[in-house]
Structures are given as structure tokens and as C-alpha cells.
Simulated scan of single mutants.
Amino acid sequence: MASKQFFLKTAPLPDEEPSQYTNLYLRHFGSGMDSIVLTPGQPKFIKGHMDGSRITFNSASHEGRKWGLALRKDGEQYAGWEKVEIVEREGSDKLLFTGGEEGSVKEVLECEEEFAEEKVWKGWMVCDWAHGYPQLFWVTHKLNGELPSFCHRVQIVREML
């Protein structure tokens, strides 16, 4: 039986008001780049589903091809955040939805990535970045202090289809 399909979108952190980055859908940037950008409209060509502890995407226009949600790591994550991408034939393990009934807005995407018994993943953030659209990043255990002024912390939730 195939797993249920969904879109991924942003939501405010608990006890925070919605921001300009609330209710935006994660989309593959394309143009030869694997970056994830955020837009107000639902993606037309990719739908996510769980494949064990990975999120994979199928394309309506490219049957048989699969992409995965990949949390990148650049060395020791000294900046405190790293890229998130949608990459063909790849994807990060240890992703899970928590906090609510299946399909509810309260069902939040988290990662159980660990390094030397310390939880590495600390959340998500959106930044006004180089592609002309807000871009998604993951926050690491190395983040000390505040985010840059052009970034904002968010949650990622799924919208069931």
C-alpha cells in the first residue's frame, strides 16, 4: 500500500504570531539547482510521501524518478545552519512527524540526527537568500546567539492530500 501524499509548508513556532514566512510551500528551485525555495502556491509537480524515515517526492511530469529531502552537512556546521535540498535519488534518514494526529497542522517535521550523542538538528529557518525567493535551511547545534536579520525560525508541517 502506498503511503499518503502531502505537501510541506511553513508554520510559526509555538506561541509565535504568523510572519511573512508562514503558510509557504516548499518547492524545488530547479534550474539545475537542488535548493528549496518557499512560495505561496502549492507545488504543481511534486508530492511528498514517507518512505520509512525519509521524505521522498514523485513528479507528475517525470514518472519513475524520485527525489528526497536532504539535510546537507558542511563539515562541523560552524555557521549554525546548513542547506536543505531536494535531490534526485538521495534523502536524509531520521525524519519524523510529531505533535499531533496524522494530517493535522500540529504534525511537525523533525530530524533525530545525532553527532557524538548530541542532537545536531535544532529546527528550521527561512532566509531571504540568493534565488529571489525565501530559502529553507536547517539549524544546527552550533548556532550561538541570534539569527541574521534576514532570517526567521519556522516549523515545517505537512498538508495531507
Rank of each mutant, 00 (worst) to 15 (best):
P14C: 01
G30T: 09
M50C: 04
M33D: 13
G80T: 02
K47G: 03
K44F: 04
K9W: 03
F7Q: 01
S35N: 15
M1K: 15
T39Y: 07
I55V: 03
D34W: 06
Q77E: 15
Q20L: 10
L38M: 03
S19G: 09
G80I: 06
I55Y: 02
K44D: 09
F29K: 14
K47A: 00
K66S: 14
S61A: 13
W67A: 06
V87Y: 14
A11H: 12
E17M: 15
L26M: 02
G48N: 00
I86C: 01
G32M: 11
L69M: 07
F7H: 11
G64S: 09
F7E: 08
V84G: 06
R27H: 13
K66P: 00
G64N: 00
G68W: 03
L71I: 02
F6V: 02
S53T: 15
H62A: 12
Q42L: 00
F57N: 04
Q5H: 13
F6G: 01
T39H: 06
T22G: 04
P18H: 03
V84M: 12
G75D: 07
E85P: 07
F6C: 01
S53R: 05
M1P: 08
P18T: 04
R89W: 12
F29C: 08
S35R: 13
S35D: 15
E63K: 13
R72Q: 12
A60F: 07
F7L: 06
Y21M: 05
T22R: 00
E17D: 14
I86Y: 10
L71A: 08
A79D: 15
H62R: 01
K9C: 02
G41S: 11
G68D: 07
D15Q: 11
L8Y: 08
K44W: 00
E85A: 14
Q77V: 15
E85K: 10
V87R: 11
T10P: 00
F6I: 00
Q77L: 14
K73S: 11
F45K: 07
R54K: 08
N23Q: 03
L69I: 02
L38D: 10
S31Q: 15
D15M: 10
S53C: 10
D74Q: 14
L8W: 02
P12Q: 02
A2V: 12
D74S: 11
Y25F: 04
V37G: 05
R54D: 06
V37A: 06
L24V: 03
P14D: 04
A60T: 11
R65C: 09
E82H: 03
T56R: 13
Y21W: 07
G52Y: 04
L38T: 06
G32C: 08
